[in-house]
Nucleic acid binder design. Sequence first.
DNA 1: GATGAATGAGTATTCATTCAT
DNA 2: GATGAATGAATACTCATTCAT
Lengths: 214, 214, 214, 214
Amino acid sequence: MAQGTAEVPGRARPLPERLLEAATRLFAENGYENTSVQEIVAAAGVTKGAMYHYFAAKDDLLYEIYHRLLALQTERLERIAGGPGTPEERLRDAVLDVIDTSCAHLDQLTVFFRSMHLLPEDKRRAVRAERRRYHERFRALVEEGRRDGTFRTDAPADLAVNFLFGAVHQISTWWHPDGALGPRDVGRYYVALFLDGLRRAGDTGVWPPSAAAL
Amino acid sequence: MAQGTAEVPGRARPLPERLLEAATRLFAENGYENTSVQEIVAAAGVTKGAMYHYFAAKDDLLYEIYHRLLALQTERLERIAGGPGTPEERLRDAVLDVIDTSCAHLDQLTVFFRSMHLLPEDKRRAVRAERRRYHERFRALVEEGRRDGTFRTDAPADLAVNFLFGAVHQISTWWHPDGALGPRDVGRYYVALFLDGLRRAGDTGVWPPSAAAL
Amino acid sequence: MAQGTAEVPGRARPLPERLLEAATRLFAENGYENTSVQEIVAAAGVTKGAMYHYFAAKDDLLYEIYHRLLALQTERLERIAGGPGTPEERLRDAVLDVIDTSCAHLDQLTVFFRSMHLLPEDKRRAVRAERRRYHERFRALVEEGRRDGTFRTDAPADLAVNFLFGAVHQISTWWHPDGALGPRDVGRYYVALFLDGLRRAGDTGVWPPSAAAL
Amino acid sequence: MAQGTAEVPGRARPLPERLLEAATRLFAENGYENTSVQEIVAAAGVTKGAMYHYFAAKDDLLYEIYHRLLALQTERLERIAGGPGTPEERLRDAVLDVIDTSCAHLDQLTVFFRSMHLLPEDKRRAVRAERRRYHERFRALVEEGRRDGTFRTDAPADLAVNFLFGAVHQISTWWHPDGALGPRDVGRYYVALFLDGLRRAGDTGVWPPSAAAL
DNA sequence: GATGAATGAGTATTCATTCAT
DNA sequence: GATGAATGAATACTCATTCAT
């Protein structure tokens, strides 16, 4: 009924959504610790009591931000990884997709990597479990590609996935939606660098792990 | 090599060092905002007054942690990058070295990526400038390798460096000194993945992806 | 005797009763200020709106607890005090009875003495008035016994009643229904101590103390 | 140096004392739960930080109030109970003394009985332990008097002590320093009532515990 | 150089109560 | 009768920093 507070035409967004949105933006801008609950509720146009009606604590907002991002990415990954195509094609598509969604949810990503350590132990454990599942799905894809002879086997699959995730997360520190490169540009380049590094290669002259100096 | 910071053995280390050491450990364990000045001085065995004698503010500790890590890594990078060998050899050594020092200063690295955004604007700008210089030196090395035909030119050098840094920073989230892999193991694998991805390659049959798949 | 408050067995007790019962238990366990309205209504299995339908404020629950206990005790006292028997016999029976009902309504008693001061002024005045009436009825009984020569007159009757009430109230701090002494045991002992102290006695050689000792 | 804040001539009272004094008065007037830390520090003329410099929590003030009162009364009791005189004389003096100190520390006594249940579990346990020691010392005195044939043995000594303490605590609910009765008046009457009740007595005609009606 | 008492501005959270439905 | 979302005012507690000694 009260459509007055709606900013997009149609229906007023539910309050929990508006609170999470405001929190995400403020956490990304100023950091979780430098954002007061007061600022969040002011940005959402309500009072503290309203927020505590939906979220038991400030860190519930943080948890929910993580949880939603992870749920989204996990769901997309599972769809792609379980779809048709060679392991390499599916890994390529998964990387492109995670970069897409990372760019589309840049604030969440920023908050995630800066502030996960601020969650209380139980919630942190929950996030880590969700994160592990995501990681494992990616790793399984890499191992599929190793079994079919596409990917190198001289480096642990786990480590390759960490290598990739690092690169992807880093995106939140330098990429900007108004910059020269769109998400798909970044995706193409990252796919090139990552997959060419991961692919089974002949002796390149740089890499004998046997080198005593190492 | 670096014996320079070691004091006379058996002697008490100077107070500023002890304070920074305590702060680094506590910031890494509990986060900057969850660590009180009182906890830091207690861990260093002194009182608040002593700390404020050496550091004008709590965030000076944070800044100093960043500054020292960056100064160390920049100095090492410049020595390696300016040394003998092909660009590829020097880049390889630089990557191995940054992984070495990252593992050796894991707490600093952790604090760096979690808490840089908590610095006041002026100090944050200073850190960013130092960081940029470091980044630029790495990029120059990549570009040397592009000019001599070793590295691919179909992805921006900037982006390749960001790609690498992401992977390196990520190390602080999964690597542990007591784990199965030593710093050199991680280094070898990362060098393999990164340099094989960066090296000029023939058509691998996967790239570019067909438009339909995107 | 008092079967009056029992509803049809098997039927749900009326809501106000259930709310008061829950409130009494929670107030006794955790204190009035540490018990939220939310906890009370949850314990009674309803929502806040339902409670506010019957009680205008949280302190109405508190007042009602006092009021019911006082009404009960006053009614019983008046029946005993106005009944047959010597003043001493009636006082004895009144003491036994107040100990009985105190043990039977231990939670109410506990709440009464801990939290009466938390009532708003007007309700506190109302409770004090009811309480005074109760006190006065007891005092009148003592004075009857003084007039007929049974009780000592060398201590104010008022003070003797306060003396007794203190002892009775204290019961809520040490007595427990599962302990070795039943309400009647406590009653017998208290009657002995109180009435033997109150009875007119010859010079016992101890009293008055010599001035020096004081 | 700064003697300006001193209200009594001589030295400025130390801040912890002033805080406890203010807290005691306010807790007695308005109740612990209705007294804010802000009110306490305002009454003591300092800021919150100063209070938290000395007391870790609001309930530390409460604990300290109890602890000091108990320590005082225990010390006095032990001096009297361990002194010269018959058990009856020492018990008489102890009762007179506890009434004296109760009247002299009426606010503490009020707070004690209203708010002890608000202490966190560990502090409550500590207070109970101190309280028990006090109770036991009193009980030992009663038992001395039973052994030498002065006091009745047909009621448990424990119960007699509880009986007495209830009467004494009650004093804080009706006695006022400006009233007609001084502490010594109250003491004399209470001693009379209590000791005459406790003394071994012949059959008084009211007390055969064998009475079937009981 | 160093202490520690004191400041004061800030924080997350609680909760009795209201009111449109 | 009853719901539950929302209010708004209050609360205990924290902590970086200062400054007289």
